Amino acid sequence: MFLAVAKEGHFGRAARSLGIAQPTLSAGIRQLEAQLGVLLIFRGSRFGGLTPEGQSTLVWARRIVGDARQLREEMRATRHGLSGRLRIAVIPTALTWAAKISARFGIAHPNVGFTILSRTSAEILQMIDDLDIDAGISYLDNEPLGKVSTVPLYDERYMLVCNQGSALARQRRVAWSDLAGQRLCLLSSDMQNRRIINRNLMSAGVTPQATVESSSTVVLVAHVLEGGWLTILPEDIAVFLAQGKTLALVPLEPPQSTHAVGLVAPWREPHTPVLEALLAEARRMVSDS
């Protein structure tokens, strides 16, 4: 109950997320405060944030819940082998890599299912902290990750996606400066990929402007196909989305720095058996490629 209130920042939403009545939730929080002998939440007529003691309790609560989940998974693995469901959140440009990992893992461990969500890099880190996911696929070197376990998967290589009739489609390589004044559609500004692209454009003296923005790579490619826009995507997702379409993929000049994308998991020693197997499979996949 306490974790739900801390996550939602609202008693009513927290109660609904747990499927209980709000008075039941409030009574549970009061009982926890009585057991600990401290006030955990500032509240008057509504949620007012966590007290300093509440912030400390939040760290412990996440640890306790994580330990309890690990105990259950280890006992289940002892009885039945690896089974259950892995929840993974993935930045939109890495969704094809999520499919690669889940496909390989599923062959070795057919009793483990996957729930795969598309989220921003910031949302992925928050979901890991909130125990809403088991792992993520995100950038490893472009924002503070905190204490996590990581497996690097690939470095982004950017491609220009354009119609085959575009003048840029006939070039062997496109400079970032060539995109000045072009009609661009790009990921929305809350996406880390967009912020990276903006920096590359500005380094080339180009003001980052997009007449269409979206959180979906499918929407971007559809605009290139239907309306003659240009978009920029990492190579793997660009190749996947352009298959069978009248589109051209042209490599962009390498930027001054590349960005690594990888599997991110909560730091625990040891990991749950299923999560440890996932990290090991990701390492094997990289070494095989």
Results as ranks from 00 to 15, higher is better:
Gly106Ser: 15
Asp190Pro: 01
Val212Glu: 04
Asn111Ala: 15
Gly106Ile: 06
Val112Ala: 00
Pro208Met: 05
Ser214Asn: 04
Val206Ser: 11
Thr96Ile: 13
Ala14Val: 05
Ala34Glu: 14
Ala135Thr: 03
His109Asp: 01
Ala61Val: 09
Ile128Cys: 02
Ser17Cys: 11
Val212Arg: 10
Glu8Asn: 09
Glu33Cys: 05
Val239Pro: 03
Glu269Leu: 13
Met202Lys: 13
Gln182Phe: 02
Gly81Asn: 11
Ile133Lys: 01
Leu249Asn: 02
Pro92Gln: 08
Pro23His: 06
Ala99Pro: 00
Ala280Glu: 14
Ile20Gly: 04
Gln70Ile: 07
Asp67Arg: 14
Arg283Val: 05
Glu235Cys: 00
Arg170Phe: 11
Leu32Cys: 03
Ile116Phe: 02
Lys7Asn: 12
Arg13Gly: 00
Glu235His: 10
Glu53Met: 13
Asp178Glu: 15
Val218Asn: 08
Leu278Ser: 06
Arg157Asp: 08
Val224Cys: 10
Gln171Ser: 13
Leu131Gly: 00
Arg30Phe: 06
Ala260His: 10
Val261Gly: 08
Leu95Phe: 11
Arg85Met: 13
Glu74Ser: 15
Gly146Cys: 06
Val212Ala: 03
Ser149Trp: 10
Gly106Asp: 07
Arg199Phe: 01
Ala204Ile: 10
Leu186Gln: 07
Ala21Tyr: 06
Met159Pro: 01
Phe42Trp: 13
Val174Glu: 06
Val250His: 11
Thr231Glu: 04
Asp134Arg: 04
Leu50His: 08
Ser17Thr: 13
Arg283Asn: 09
Leu168Glu: 07
Leu241Phe: 00
Arg157Glu: 15
Phe42Cys: 00
Val261Ser: 06
Ala68Trp: 03
Leu86Gly: 02
Leu145Val: 09
Arg63Ser: 03
Thr272Trp: 01
Ala265Gln: 05
Pro266Ser: 07
